Simulated scan of single mutants.
Amino acid sequence: MIEVKQISKAIKGQPILDRISVNFEAGYIYGLRGKNGAGKTMLLRAIAGLINIDTGKIIINDQTLHDEIDFPPSLGILIENDNLLPEHTAMRNLQLLARIKKVASDTDIETAIRRVGLDPADQRIVKKFSLGMRQRLAIAQAIFERPDLILLDEPTNAIDTDGVEQVREILLAEKKRGATIVIASHSQEDLAVLADVVYEMAEGHLQ
């Protein structure tokens, strides 16, 4: 359970998030829809613990963010620029990331890479990947540890039609597994297919 209670954030005096309250429950997919600059990405960043909010609270499984915990303990994330290491292969990228929490095996990593339509044995470095391949790997990075909370910003960007279907199938499977999933997207079709609840965002407000 994610509880967002009256959170606000301003940058240089400009409100980015304005008194937002919302709950996100396990086993559901939530959509955030709105124009660029509406606050969607900033809300994801706040829930991920990547920014400090000015007022309000974010509570994750009864623990307050930036008080009892610094980050959500079980998090998969894709927000704006990916954090892939360009000089390493897909497999090596996730192996290095797996060292942090030590919850995913090489088999888990291989499975996640195959789920997004890539080959774990591919020896090409990420720098030589197409934009679509990089996006697929970034999604694999978000799911390979089977996290409780998955936050995705425009997950189907740069992905071809077949890849979009794969991503949707993956997210529906992660929902069935019991994950809490929040997606910010401009794609009406993605949100129509995936989201149990869609919130509109405009000028830092959630509707």
Rank of each mutant, 00 (worst) to 15 (best):
M1V: 10
E3K: 14
E3D: 09
K5W: 03
K5T: 10
Q6F: 02
Q6N: 14
Q6R: 12
Q6K: 13
I7K: 00
I7C: 03
S8E: 09
K12S: 14
Q14Y: 10
Q14K: 15
P15H: 06
L17T: 07
V22K: 13
E25R: 15
G27Y: 15
Y30D: 13
G34R: 00
K35M: 09
N36F: 04
G37N: 09
G37H: 08
G39Q: 01
K40T: 05
K40M: 03
M42D: 06
L43S: 07
R45S: 13
R45K: 15
A46T: 06
A48L: 13
L50I: 15
T55M: 05
I59L: 09
I59N: 09
D62L: 04
E68R: 12
E68L: 12
E68H: 10
D70L: 15
F71Q: 14
P73M: 06
P73T: 06
S74W: 09
G76R: 00
G76P: 09
I77A: 12
I79H: 11
I79C: 08
I79L: 08
E80N: 13
N83M: 10
L84A: 05
E87F: 14
M91C: 07
R92G: 04
R92A: 10
L94H: 00
L94Y: 01
Q95Y: 08
Q95F: 09
L96T: 10
L96K: 00
L97I: 12
A98T: 08
R99S: 05
K101H: 13
K101S: 13
S105W: 14
S105R: 07
D106G: 11
T107Y: 14
T111R: 14
I113P: 12
R114D: 07
R114P: 08
G117V: 06
G117K: 01
G117T: 04
D119Y: 11
D122T: 09
I125H: 03
I125L: 04
I125F: 05
F129W: 07
M133F: 12
R134E: 06
Q135D: 12
Q135P: 07
L137V: 10
L137M: 07
I139F: 07
A140M: 05
A140Y: 02
A140V: 08
A140G: 08
Q141C: 07
I143V: 14
I143N: 01
F144G: 01
D148I: 04
L149V: 14
L149T: 11
I150R: 00
L151T: 08
L152R: 00
E154L: 00
P155E: 05
N157H: 04
N157D: 06
I159E: 01
I159Y: 02
I159T: 01
D160E: 08
T161R: 05
G163C: 10
V164P: 03
V164W: 01
V164F: 03
V164K: 05
V164D: 04
V164S: 03
E165C: 08
R168D: 15
I170W: 02
L172D: 04
A173Y: 03
E174A: 02
R177Q: 07
R177L: 13
V182M: 06
A184V: 00
A184M: 01
A184G: 11
Q188L: 08
L191N: 06
V193E: 08
L194P: 09
L194K: 00
A195E: 05
A195S: 11
D196E: 07
D196N: 07
D196K: 00
M201F: 03
A202G: 04
G204D: 07
G204M: 02
Q207N: 11
Q207P: 03
